[in-house]
Design a protein around this nucleic acid. Structure first.
Lengths: 343, 343
DNA sequence: TGATAGAATGACAACGTTGTCATTGACTAA
DNA sequence: TTAGTCAATGACAACGTTGTCATTCTATCA
C-alpha cells in the first residue's frame, strides 16, 4: 500500500451543517462553544461532526476572526540541537501549550541572512508573536521585526532595539566572576575562547573577561584571546595551539558550552586536564562526572525560556506596561577544574 | 515605551493595488512571479509593495490555493530538549528549509493524551505532513493520524499502522549485540534498565536483551530487569538499588541516553564505575571523556531525521511508491566501560 | 387577548488571497 | 483592409470561516 495520501478535500462546516440540517452559523456556534444553541441542535451538530470526522480549519477561522490570532508563535534559536537552546525551547513550549499555542521553531545558525528568511516566513504565516535569540544586532533585522507589528521578545541575547522585552543573564558579571575566580587561585595568564565576536553574548562575556582581568590587576594579553570560535572542533584546535605555545596560559575561560567541551577534549588529549584550570560559561550535562569535575558559570535556560514566554503571552493578553529588560544572575559552580592552582 | 503592538491591520494586496493603480489580480501575479506582467506594471507594483511594507499572507493564500499547501509540517517528539530528539529535529529542519517549509515542533512527553492534542492542533492548522516519534502504539492515535489525511512518517519508533513510511534503527539487533558483547567479557548477570515498556523502542531493546541473553546461553533473571525508568533520577535510583542487592549484577545495559547518564551518576557515586561493566543505547556528548570511557550502541539521529524528512517531502512531491520501512543499523562503539571484565 | 421581550436560529457579507474567464488592444497574415 | 492571434489586464467568484444583523418563535406581562 502506498503512503497516506491527501483526501480530495477535508469536510467543511457547510457539509456538517447540511448533514445536521442546520445553518452554517449554528455549526460555527457549536464548534466555538458559543452560548445560545439549544441542546437538541447541539447534539445533532456534534453527531454530524463525529460522523464526518470534521476538523476545524484554524487557517480559515483566523482569516475571518476579529483578533487575527493564529494561536501560533515563532521561535528563532541559533540551533535547535544545541543543548542550551533546546532546553530554552522546551520551556517556551510548555508555557505556549498552556495558552493552546503552537510553536514554529527554527535555527538561524547565527546567520543574519537565514535569520531574516525565518522572520519573513513567520511573518507571512501571521504568527501572534516572536521569541528570538537574535543573531545580528544590526538595524536591518530590527526593521524586519517591527514590520511584523507583533510582540517580540529577545531571549539570551539582545539586539539594538529598545521597543522589545528581553530576558538575558548578566553575562558580563559572569565572565568577570570567572576570571577573578581563576585569578584568586593564582592564575595570571588566563586565555579567553569565545564565539563569533559580533554576537551579543560573546561580546558581553569578553567584556566581563576584560573587566575581570582589570579588577584582578592582570594585564590583558591579546595573544591569549581567541574569538570567533565556531564549534567544538575549532575550540579543540584553538586550545591545542594555546597549549603548544612557549608562553602558554595556565587557565582557560571558555565562553560557550560547546567551546568548553572542545577545550576539554584538547586538554584530555594532551593529558593536561589536571594542570590547566578551566571555567566554562554555561553548565552542561555530565560536567559533574568528568575528571576533573568542570567548574562553570551556570545559567538557568529553562527559567530564561519560561520568563520570555510569559512576557510574550502577557503582551498578547493586552499588557501595555513599558518594555521589560529582565536580567538574571549567573552562578559560579566550583567543581574542581576552576580551582586547580597555578603550578 | 511599551512593547511593539499590533498594527490596526497589515497592508493587503488591495491597498497595494490601489497605490500602484492596478487591479488586485495584477498584484497577485507580481507577488507570485507569474508570467505575463509588463515590466512597467511590475515596477509600479514592486514600488507600492516597498512603500507599504506589504507582507504576503500565506494563511489567506493557502485558503484559496488549489493545492492547499501551507508550506508547514508538524514534528512531534517525545521531548524537544532531549539531546537525541533535538539532533533529529535539526536534521529535519534542514531538509524542510530546503523546501521553504516551516516546522511546528512539539513535545508529547510520551503522553498519549498530549500527543493527541498535538495531532489535533496540527491538523487544525492544516500542516502538509507530519513526522512523529509516536508515544502510543494503539489505534486511537492511528485514527487521528489518518484523519489528517496527510502523509505521515514515523521516525525512531513505530506504531501499529502500516500505511505510513518509517525510519528506525534495528533496536533489537543493537540490544542483542550489547548483551552478547558483555557476555563475551565474562558477564553472566547483566541488568537491563529501560524506558516505559510500552514504547516501541524500549520494547524492542528489551527483546534484544532477551535474545542476546539466550544467544549467549545466559539465564534471564527478572529481578535484574528494570522497566519504566522515566528519567535520569529514577535511573540513578534504580542502579543504586541494584548495586545494594546481595546478588548484584556485574554489568548494565542501559537502554536509553538519559538512563545511561543516570546510571553513570550512580556508579560514580558508589565508586563502582571501574568494576561494573556498562553499555548504553545511544551515544552522547562526552561519552568519550568520562572515566571509564563509555561504550555505546550508537545510532545516527541526524541521518534518521534527514531520511524521515526526505521521505515526507518525496510524498509531498507526489511519490506514490509503496510505503517504505527504512531500518538503519546500529554500531557498537567499544570505549572501555563495556569491556570491563568480570572480577 | 395583544403587545413585547428575549432566546434561538439563519442569511449574508466579509476576511485576503487565487482561479477562471472575459475584455482590451496590438500585432500578424491573407 | 480585415480577420485572427496572442499577450496583458481585470472583474468576479470562491476558499472555510466568523461578525452583524434580521427573522422566527416562545414565553411573559399588562
Amino acid at each position: 500500500m502506498s503512503g497516506i495520501h491527501l483526501n480530495d478535500r477535508e469536510p467543511t462546516m457547510r457539509e456538517v451543517a447540511a448533514l445536521a440540517g442546520v445553518s452554517l452559523k449554528t455549526v460555527s456556534r457549536v464548534i466555538n462553544q458559543e452560548a445560545g444553541v439549544s441542546s437538541e441542535l447541539n447534539e445533532r451538530v456534534q453527531n454530524a461532526v463525529r460522523q464526518l470526522n470534521y476538523q476545524p480549519n484554524t487557517t480559515a477561522s483566523n482569516l475571518r476572526r476579529a483578533d487575527q490570532r493564529t494561536a501560533t508563535i515563532g521561535l528563532i534559536l541559533d540551533d535547535v540541537s544545541n543543548p542550551f537552546s533546546s532546553v530554552l525551547h522546551r520551556a517556551i513550549e510548555d508555557v505556549a501549550s498552556q495558552h493552546r499555542t503552537l510553536v514554529f521553531a527554527g535555527s538561524s545558525g547565527d546567520d543574519p541572512k537565514r535569520e531574516e528568511e525565518l522572520i519573513l516566513a513567520l511573518a507571512a504565516r501571521r504568527v501572534d508573536g516572536l521569541i528570538t535569540v537574535p543573531a545580528s544586532r544590526a538595524s536591518g533585522e530590527l526593521k524586519q521585526l517591527q514590520r511584523l507589528g507583533k510582540p517580540v521578545v529577545f531571549v539570551d541575547r539582545l539586539a539594538t532595539i529598545h521597543t522589545a522585552d528581553s530576558v538575558t543573564v548578566d553575562n558580563r558579571a559572569g565572565g568577570s566572576a570567572a576570571v577573578r575566580h581563576l585569578a584568586a587561585h593564582g592564575h595570571q595568564r588566563i586565555a579567553f575562547l569565545g564565539d563569533i565576536h559580533d554576537l551579543w553574548t560573546a561580546a558581553e562575556r569578553y567584556l566581563g573577561y576584560v573587566e575581570g582581568l582589570a579588577m584582578a590587576g592582570l594585564r590583558l594579553d591579546p595573544s591569549l584571546v581567541r574569538q570567533d570560535v565556531r564549534n567544538m572542533e575549532t575550540a579543540e584546535q584553538a586550545v591545542l595551539e594555546l597549549l603548544a605555545r612557549e608562553n602558554a596560559p595556565s587557565a582557560l575561560f571558555t565562553a560557550q558550552n560547546l567551546i568548553t567541551i572542545g577545550a576539554i577534549h584538547a586538554l584530555q588529549r594532551m593529558g593536561r586536564q589536571h594542570q590547566m584550570a578551566l571555567i566554562g560559561f554555561d553548565d552542561f550535562l555530565l560536567a559533574d562526572l568528568l575528571d576533573p569535575r568542570v567548574s562553570v558559570i551556570a545559567q538557568d535556560p529553562a527559567r530564561l525560556g519560561r520568563l520570555a514566554a510569559e512576557l510574550l503571552f502577557a503582551r498578547l493578553g493586552g499588557d501595555t506596561r513599558p518594555t521589560q529588560q529582565i536580567v538574571l544572575p549567573t552562578r559560579l559552580i566550583a567543581r574542581g577544574s576552576g580551582e586547580i592552582p597555578i603550578t
